[in-house]
């Protein structure tokens, strides 16, 4: 996974200003900030509010509404396991249990060493090759124990 820049308010300001005139700018701004820093720093909220001339509460409301936006950095790797119906039908529950046991975390958590965040996702559109997962930007499907273990090994690096 790409190493992210540490939080920097000046870079953040530039990212926001560059997009402030876009209609409905808030989501594009939040995506760009998360792409740069890996999460949305608390300091970003008042900064965005000031530049877009909306309330802090509104910005906070949006950041918390969407599952994608993080308040703290994720692990070095993010492993998303599909937990939706088609993948359930192909043994997704057992794979999720295996991943949790191997990593020693529950879905939604990051390992203590900050290496891997294990997250549920509800459908990746790969249902015809279920069960499916995504490691950082890479999609993987027809998962079985062996393939999952290989993914976990990759995430450990």
């Amino acid at each position: 996974m790409a190493t992210r820049a540490p939080w920097d308010i000046d870079i953040a300001r530039a990212i926001i200003v560059e997009r402030q005139a876009v209609p409905g700018a808030l989501l594009p701004i939040l995506h760009a900030l998360q792409e740069e820093f890996g999460y949305i720093d608390r300091e970003a909220e008042p900064l965005i509010a000031g530049i877009l001339n909306i309330s802090r509460a509104e910005v906070h409301g949006v950041v918390t509404f969407y599952h994608d936006f993080r308040h703290k950095p994720a692990g070095r790797h993010v492993l998303k396991l599909c937990r939706a119906e088609s993948c359930q039908a192909r043994g997704g529950d057992a794979l999720a249990a295996r991943a949790q046991a191997r990593l020693g975390v529950t879905l939604g958590d990051t390992t203590a060493d900050g290496q891997v965040s294990l997250e549920p996702v509800y459908c990746l559109g790969l249902c015809s090759v279920s069960p499916a997962a995504m490691l950082d930007d890479k999609v993987v499907a027809r998962l079985d124990d062996k393939k999952l273990d290989a993914l976990l090994a990759e995430a450990a690096r």
């Binding site: 939706a84 119906e85 088609s86 993948c87 509800y122 459908c123 559109g125 790969l126 249902c127 015809s128």
Partner: peptide, 11 residues
Amino acid sequence: DEGDSGTFADR
């Protein structure tokens, strides 16, 4: 947005 599980035609 194609959120429905089991669907992938839009994609």
